[in-house]
Design a protein around this nucleic acid. Structure first.
Lengths: 372, 372
DNA sequence: CGAGTGTCTGAATCTAAGC
DNA sequence: GGCTTAGATTCAGACACTC
């Protein structure tokens, strides 16, 4: 997990010609059939919700609610909806790289069927994410709870797949706390809501902030994102802004027109702004022995844990010795604690002017002096 | 919908003898078979989640997570889980009065399969409800988003069924705002968490506050609530306190013992206890990253301190970059000043018409627009 | 007794790279 | 693919304990 190397990413797409940064005006299943195996890094899908609204809804004051009643959202039966869902999910899985993930958004009308299909096809669900709407439409009749959220499913291609997740970037985005599975965003309205002839251009336009978080979490700059239900191109607009490549599939020409215009107007961020906080795995590794070799720690120096419960002596080869037991900084720390594993960099400390400091501080010093 | 008359309710249960306020120690499907058609007002079900956990999981400090590894949560395949799910849901629907509703709680491991089965069997989903946990277990390995919620499905017996929903009670409970589909509650811990021999009596005990809201929303005093996966009897305890009748089904005798003792000790709620059942209000906390995601501050924007001594650039993940040093608004502010800590909200400013304004002003704007 | 510190725990599908 | 090794990784709340 984490950041795949550039070489890995290049190799995975070698020799294929993807229709990058384009809208394919076609049925999504047909269009996906023309794309090569294991060729895209992420798929974001906002399929029809299978809404079964019985007749028109009326607001208390009499105005008609502009509900979703487009033809593309009509399915006779659950079976038909399932058939359609399983067909496009299967194509999507074929196209997805082994390291890729899929996101699907839906509501209670369809998300349970989508989720079951995802599991049945061998995808491995990583999280379900709740988009909490800060300003949902009220339930005018007072017959149910205000439907104030939608659900996203995030899944890897298989149980064993190594997937991209920018953990540090998400944690940074959330004020240094782990990003949770419940996200709060306003619905798409105001200037962001695309209009045509005074009416909203698309009934279910998603907020860019939602896509922003999804793309930042699960892709890297240059990655290819496929959206098989492109609509007015929110995915494309955010992808362009974040320096990602995109492929959109959309059947309705009017939506395609709106999306093209919108994406053309979107401005990409410059490279420095695209940088995000990285996990330590992305930083060059420093072997503990190097600190001994360079004299930052001398053989014979005594290390101890934060509570001075265990002590160990540094040996010339960078191993530690604790009255009989010995091993690498990690192994000895694990052995002494009786734990399955241990990060020796944070476990072991050295004494500096009476205070204990983790040996990781020495590593940081070394990195600053030798890499920057 | 709304309150059914006493006459309607009496008619519906006329001539049947239900095992009221009792625990049936049996397999849930077998026990349900013995109950008459259309005889209970509500069903609350907390079935096995089919977690499919791997090996042990260790916390960063070395402790081992006490995971759910009970036999009752083990299923060979999704097909077997589906078979089980559809069997108990079918019996439940037979037992449910036409005016009754069913609640099922689950996580992404099982809820999609449960939801699809519910729809397939003719139930009519009314809402999906998200229980947001104020204190979930973190993701110790940093591999996914913190799994911070569970999902409940609320469904009527059929599309045309007239069901009970105490709209006014919910609105009152929520400070005169319509109750939304996302609920915030702590997990069950502390004194409420039942123990046996110093160890938790049940691995997945649900908080009473959750059941309290469910029962208050969808039943009336005197109504009969069936819980086919009774566990330690949270449903029974809350039902008793709210003046409802209950039937519990539980296979494990040890859970039955705990539940009986617990319910015997439960007292009807008084006014002061009612208040403790209220949901904590969502903390109006805003992460700096949200201002970036929503476009209030764009990646690449330049921030500076009040005296323009330091400058930093906003990056895509909400971190700041100051020629080499980088980090969150708080961390970078502290680093640059050489201080142990720093409130980034008041330290960093943005330029607006030539004047410097603290970024805290943007946070206030966001809060006004999205939380109030 | 109060403030502050340390410990424990909760429905969890919980590592990555190199040989 | 299986094995070994390096080394990355946690939030909120309840409660016990110390000063």
């Amino acid at each position: 997990m984490g950041v795949l190397t550039k070489i890995e990413r290049r190799a995975a797409t070698k020799g294929v010609a993807l229709p990058l940064d384009q809208i394919l005006m076609d049925d999504c299943i047909e269009a996906m059939r023309a794309l090569p195996d294991a060729s895209v890094d992420m798929i974001f899908a906002d399929p029809p919700y299978n809404l079964q609204l019985g007749g028109d809804l009326f607001r208390p004051e009499g105005g008609r609610v502009d509900a979703v009643d487009n033809d593309w959202d009509k399915f006779d039966t659950f079976a038909h909806y399932d058939q359609f869902t399983r067909a496009w999910l299967a194509e999507a899985r074929r196209i997805l790289k082994d390291s890729g993930t899929i996101w699907v958004i839906g509501s209670y009308h369809n998300i349970f069927r989508v989720g079951a299909a995802i599991q049945d096809q061998g995808y491995w669900i990583l999280n379900d994410i709740v988009w909490r709407k800060s300003n949902p439409m009220p339930n005018f009749k007072g017959t149910r709870f205000t439907n104030a959220h939608e659900t996203l499913i995030w899944a890897a291609k298989s149980e064993s797949a190594r997937y991209t997740f920018n953990y540090r970037a998400m944690k940074t985005l959330n004020d240094e706390l782990q990003m949770r599975s419940d996200w709060l965003f306003p619905i798409c309205s105001g200037a962001e809501r695309l209009k045509r002839g005074g009416h909203k251009a698309h009934p279910t336009q998603k907020p860019e902030a939602l896509l922003y978080r999804v793309l930042l979490a699960c892709t890297n700059p240059g990655d290819v994102i496929l959206d098989p239900f492109f609509g007015t191109g929110t995915t494309g607009a955010v992808a362009k802004r974040l320096g990602r490549r995109w492929i959109g599939i959309e059947r309705e020409s009017s939506y395609c027109d709106v999306a093209r215009e919108r994406i053309a107007a979107a401005l990409p961020l410059d490279e420095s702004a695209l940088k995000t906080m990285q996990s330590p795995t992305a930083a060059p590794k420093v072997a503990f022995g190097v600190l001994v070799e360079t004299g930052m720690l001398k053989p014979g120096a005594v290390l101890m844990d934060a509570k001075r419960r265990w002590r160990a002596t540094v040996r010339a080869d960078g191993s530690l010795d604790a009255s009989g037991a010995s091993g690498s900084i990690h192994k000895l720390g694990a052995t002494l604690q009786g734990a399955p594993s241990c990060n020796g960099w944070t476990f072991w400390h050295y004494e500096d002017a009476g205070a204990l400091k983790p040996i990781d501080a020495l590593r940081q010093t070394y990195l600053l002096a030798n890499e920057a």
